[in-house]
Amino acid sequence: MSTAVSPARIAMSRASLETRSYFRERDSVIFSFLFPVIMLGIFAVVFGGEDVGPSSGAPVDFAQYFLPGMVASGIMLVSFQTLAISLAIEREDGTLKRLRGTPMPPVSYFLGKVGMILVVGLSQIALLLAVAAVAFGVELPTEPSKWLTFAWCYVLGTAGGAVLGIAYSSVPRSAKSASAVVVGPLLVLQFISGVFFVFNDLPSWLQNVASVFPLKWLAQGMRSVFLPDRLETLEVSASWQHGPTALILSLWLIAGLVICVRTFRWQRRDDG
């Protein structure tokens, strides 16, 4: 039995394997896949009926205001959190070392992860939007320009989250500590990035801190997609700031790539 080995075919095969593994792991399904949906449900039920809006013009329901934050949060959970934790574990338990000992092309491994994130991430967003629309009556945008904005925000956010997750996977000292070391900081970031609260309500120094990190920009980009344009005045700068958003997300993506290339290891620090 002799067949040609193509990196693309192996990448497809790995993506399918990774996706199956992801959905079989109950923790990952609950804490990264369903988490934004659950949070949306809780917030919509608790704050349902409360409105968020500018001083002039019709306000929107809190469920609608909350949706873009959950979309942004979900993107970071699926890309950054999933990869940072799973790679820390795979490095610790020898999965990566074993793979390195086979002729599997490294690019196929990373493409497999990307494929998994795309499948998981897009299905998560589809589920979020469906729940928001059906259960909470959120109106979804229909203009193509909004969906174009969604597309580039999603791609930059996911790609950046993925490379930063791979880079960050070297930080936890062991697989046991990985969840805590990854989830903790990301949770703090979610609180200060305008995911759970109206960003404008945060003290300005906290807004400045959050502005360094990509989640704030991703959430802002998603607000420009899922909120009516009359809410643009609620932003700190009274603008959706698409230019700075694209720039800062791209800078994080490039920084993440450079760190990955320089620091990625197939083995534990104490092993080789």
């Binding site: 199956r20 593994s21 079989r24 792991e25 338990d93 020898g94 999965t95 070392k97």
Partner: peptide, 14 residues
């Protein structure tokens, strides 16, 4: 080359 490492692990859900 075939390698059987000292530690087995990983791919737990497959």
């Amino acid at each position: 080359i075939g390698i059987v490492l000292q530690s087995s692990g990983g791919h737990d859900e497959l």
